[in-house]
Amino acid sequence: MAKPIGSTPIFSLFVMFSLLYSGSSQTIHNEQKTWCIANPLASNSALAANIEYICSQLDCGSINPKGPCFEPNSRMHHASFAMNLYYQANGRHLFDCNFINSGLVSLIDPSYGNCSFHSGTSDELLQLNINFACNLVDCNATHSGGVCYYPATLINHASYAMNLYYQITGRKKSNCNFRETSLIVSSDPSYGNCSYPCFTVQ
């Protein structure tokens, strides 16, 4: 389970998409969905360490005993769910699915039954999220000339706007839903001169 909200910075970050890995090359395909799964050759200890690390930062409730992804109750399966959660939340870069060679990028959706593995989200949803959030919060930082304008992508601008909305509205889990296109993370997504606001919960 994710750590309870307290003094630890918590950020709202939507499920992002970017890299498609095929063979020994990597190509950017914004429309291509990819997932991170556990390498079948990885040791149980490595997978257990992955689960512990990821679930200390992100909400792994789905693999708890009453969660929709608990069965099959195997370390390989639970690690795949957690590793994909981390991979999606951090931008779907190859290195976000490495985990010391215990992860693999898959082009096949590992979801099954009621268990859904998060994946990329469409440009239309990202734009809707930007429109909604920026009607209520100040998104000038993502406008041309702003410190968070670059990279000038929907992914970047939506991430900033959604986090700002989440922070200003009290950091409630329900305020980081955005039609199930977002995740709460404890890793600060700030970069360069672009700072993602994080307000302490009283």
Rank of each mutant, 00 (worst) to 15 (best):
Q32W: 05
Y196T: 05
S116L: 14
T34S: 00
F117S: 04
G6P: 11
C115M: 10
C115Q: 14
F11L: 00
L126S: 07
S43F: 08
N90P: 02
L19V: 07
N175H: 06
I10F: 05
P65Q: 12
Y196C: 09
F17P: 07
I10A: 10
H143E: 08
M1L: 13
S182I: 02
S186A: 07
N156W: 07
F132Q: 15
Y21I: 15
M1Y: 13
F95G: 02
V137G: 04
S119Q: 09
C55E: 00
C55L: 00
L126V: 04
E180G: 04
L136D: 03
F178S: 10
G67E: 04
T181Q: 02
Y149L: 14
K173P: 13
A46C: 02
P197M: 06
A158D: 11
A152M: 02
N64H: 13
M162R: 00
F117A: 09
S18N: 11
S195T: 14
L164F: 14
P4C: 03
L94R: 13
Q202V: 13
A48Q: 14
S195D: 14
A42I: 00
A89Y: 06
H77T: 15
S119T: 15
A89Q: 05
Y150P: 14
E71M: 11
G91M: 09
Y150E: 15
Y196K: 04
D59L: 08
P151G: 01
G145C: 05
T34P: 00
S190C: 10
S116A: 14
Q26K: 08
F70R: 08
Q32P: 00
V137R: 03
R171Q: 11
S187A: 05
G113H: 07
A89P: 08
Q167P: 06
A48H: 11
F199H: 07
P110A: 06
F17T: 06
G23Q: 13
S43C: 11
Y21E: 12
I184H: 02
R92M: 08
M16E: 13
S186K: 03
M76H: 14
K33A: 07
C134S: 06
K172I: 07
M83L: 15
R179A: 15
R92Q: 10
F81R: 02
E124F: 13
G170T: 08
A79W: 03
N50S: 13
P110F: 01
K3H: 07
N73P: 02
F81T: 00
A42E: 00
S25N: 06
P65R: 10
Q127S: 08
A161I: 04
P40H: 05
M1I: 13
A82C: 05
K33C: 12
L125E: 15
G61P: 01
C139Y: 00
C176M: 07
G23I: 08
R75K: 15
K3I: 15
I10S: 08
I100D: 11
N177K: 09
F117N: 07
N50C: 09
F99P: 00
